[in-house]
Nucleic acid binder design. Structure first.
Lengths: 218, 218
DNA sequence: ACGGTAACAGACAGATCGGTCTATCTGTCC
DNA sequence: GGACAGATAGACCGATCTGTCTGTTACCGT
């Protein structure tokens, strides 16, 4: 599961104008999506690139091209927007991984590699700031916080995916090895952030593959 | 190099009152150190536990028991205080490592292990928030920022220390292996932060040791 | 045509931010 | 004793923050 850069997903491109006869109000360059979605798009872009605490509500609504009130009717508070942003990012990351894995057939090692590949391509985008979930945990360190819950869920899901692949590989110790692969993944993203290079992720991928392959064939 | 929790160094304990006939003014419980040092102590404690952006100037000066003006005469700005805090932490981390390594004789593997041990004991303290340098980089992501410079210096020094130990071990590829050990170190601290447990660091230490030992005997 | 809903723009409130400034106090040195 | 340096408390400033509220506009279903 990639935990990184700005989504390349359904963010900016309204590929065919106001999509048929959908709601087509607003003056300039009709946005084609509702305020809630545009707010999440703006939040993702800004929070990913500059950090959550560093970006104020005003920046978000200006970027989204949305009224202040819309943010509060749809989300209620900045904190709630932050949670929604993280949850959507988690869903999108999962979708991206599934898309990348599709057509791989039965290749558990390839599934593990795909997670690193997605992170690596995210790291190559400019403005990369590392794993957004760990970053969120850094900015909102309160243990009981909803942010912590989203982060924990993301990480559990990621580790389970690693573990499943290892089980399918017939690895003798899938639990410990999944933990190690996640550790290496975390380190790769951290190093990549600090050094502004995708190299640590490449290194992490190689390391992870070695861990997965070691004594894998029974 | 431990990159972690609140210093156990010369923070709070004035072990012998106002130390002889030194400057002993102030009303309650004479502080025994100057405002600059007390500010750095307070900054370290608060920034480490709650994050830099989350802690305002007022909290820092209140915790330090120091006048607002003192902060600005000694440091000039909050940003400068942040840099000073990071630089002092870096110095102290290095001192702690040297202290831990002293008496180890010629044990390069032990020196590597010591870095992980220090991180591990930091992670066991409550309020642990992970690597403070990576956290600072997260909170101040501007590439040219002085924060980035301090973080880069810290990481370079750490990697060099790993490399030196590996060279002494006769490792065939000290550069790549040092990078890998740092990667594993980063991952351990990240996981430790996210999961609020020292276990990832323990796992990282084992992994690092295996990396250092592999094909080490020529 | 009309009423309802949802989004709009923007003023406003209260808190907090980093930073400046004045005025007072205290200990030190001459 | 008196000038001086450094620290103190705390008022003050403008900017910015999250969040609320008012009033207007535009679309949509009936």
């Amino acid at each position: 599961m990639p935990s990184s850069g700005p989504s390349s997903g359904p963010s900016s491109g309204p590929s065919s104008g106001p999509s048929a006869d959908s709601p087509s109000r607003r003056s300039p360059a009709a946005p084609a999506t509702g305020p809630a979605e545009r707010l999440l798009d703006a939040a993702a872009r800004l929070f990913d690139r500059e950090g959550i605490r560093a970006v104020g509500i005003d920046r978000v609504i200006a970027t989204a091209g949305v009224a202040r009130a819309s943010l509060y009717t749809h989300f209620g508070s900045k904190d709630a927007l932050v949670i929604a942003y993280l949850e959507r990012a988690d869903r999108e990351d999962l979708q991206r991984l599934r898309r990348a894995v599709r057509g791989l057939g039965d290749d558990p090692l390839g599934r593990i590699r795909a997670a690193f590949d997605l992170a690596s391509s995210a790291a190559r985008r400019r403005g990369y700031r590392g794993c957004r979930y760990l970053n969120a945990a850094t900015e909102f360190p309160e243990p009981g916080s909803p942010v912590a819950a989203v982060v924990a869920e993301h990480r559990t899901r990621q580790r389970t995916a690693f573990r499943d692949a290892l089980v399918q590989l017939g690895h003798p110790d899938p639990d410990e090895t999944a933990a190690r692969i996640q550790l290496v993944y975390d380190g790769g993203l951290a190093g990549s952030k600090a050094e502004r290079s995708a190299e640590p992720i490449t290194r992490a991928a190689a390391l992870a593959e070695a861990l997965a392959a070691a004594t894998a064939g029974r």
